[in-house]
Design a protein around this nucleic acid. Sequence first.
DNA 1: GAGAAAACTGACCGATCGATCAATATCTAC
DNA 2: GTAGATATTGATCGATCGGTCAGTTTTCTC
Lengths: 215, 215
Amino acid sequence: MSETPKRSKNQLKSHIRAQNQALILSTAERVFARQGLAKTTTQMIANEAGLPKANIHYYYRSKKDLLEAVLESILQLWLDSVSQFNVETGPRHNLTRYISEKLDQSRLNPNASKVFAMALIGEEPFVLEFLRRYFVDELQKEKQTIDTWVAQGLMKPVAVEHLFITIWAMTQTYADFDAQVKILLQKDELDESDFDEAKQFVTRMVLLSCGVEEA
Amino acid sequence: MSETPKRSKNQLKSHIRAQNQALILSTAERVFARQGLAKTTTQMIANEAGLPKANIHYYYRSKKDLLEAVLESILQLWLDSVSQFNVETGPRHNLTRYISEKLDQSRLNPNASKVFAMALIGEEPFVLEFLRRYFVDELQKEKQTIDTWVAQGLMKPVAVEHLFITIWAMTQTYADFDAQVKILLQKDELDESDFDEAKQFVTRMVLLSCGVEEA
DNA sequence: GAGAAAACTGACCGATCGATCAATATCTAC
DNA sequence: GTAGATATTGATCGATCGGTCAGTTTTCTC
């Protein structure tokens, strides 16, 4: 976040600030995901973080500021994950890895996915702006990579936008709508084996549609 | 709703009640979808329906009652749509029809999909109970139908639960997250041709994964 | 350890919203 | 037409919530 000037011990310029901001941010992400954006009160976040409400407002002026801070940390994480497509290792490896990684994210951090989903459905300007600013260009890079693979005969031509839209839909549905998935699979909780089945299923679907043979 | 006793003209027992409830219900669905559940105030619904707020509460005791009424009408519509699988016309026709129908629903009534999505993410007990009560059994019927097709050699065996989870995810993403889709497709509005491309893409994916040749 | 900066917090405020209610009006059955 | 049922609505209440602020405590700097 900030440069680290010469300093005794291991304290940043304002270690208290950094520490409390991090605590509030992670707590807020959890509560936002559980309660929804509008239903979440600053009091809930304060209680769960073990701080007085006024202290929350000391670090984040408004509830909207706090929400945007949470969203930014989520979106940055996701952007990093998309940008790891590597043209040299070919479509099978990259698509398999990406789907696996997205489903791991859904399993390990469903809250983040839900916060993003709710903000997107609600068309929060902050999220739309972030997508416009960063994801559109990123998708162009993946499009070029896939074009290269097609030219090399490694896969069939596909509608890249729809490919990513459907991959995101399929992988995130296991986080966003996990309540529905649990009901349909008749399970109280989804375990790693459920996500492994989902990985297999989604990966097979995607590879087939790209004309890539499975391993 | 109620039985129709012998009556002059074409009026039900309480035509005023039925009329106003219908007006409030359709207005509420629209506003809930636009504003989100918690952000929607009864005043907004009242304004948009052209009624005083107290009149809304005369027909629906609480905001929660109204939300549940809206959700029930949405879920009933969807349940009807799932239950049209017909074993006699084979997998290709049925899967193609179902995906087309789901994407038509996403295009023509994105609001309904969004209301459901938000309620599901928020794990509204009413929605979960409805899914448990009706959709689980319905899915069993589709499972049997598909088993029959597999036995007839019309398609490969698939994980039916994951098949429907992913079909729902892919088709509803074009309604729920249309804002994201618009940004990635660089369009101000999604038109029928965008949905036709989505239909083609999703249908091809699903049919390939089921081992069904395309038409 | 003194002075300044940063952090903390209880108490409070204004606005909003769901819900109620008493009144009045309208409709229906006979 | 009249009595009872049904429908309508302005006014208002109580609760909740985001946000503020003044006063205090803690931490940092020299």
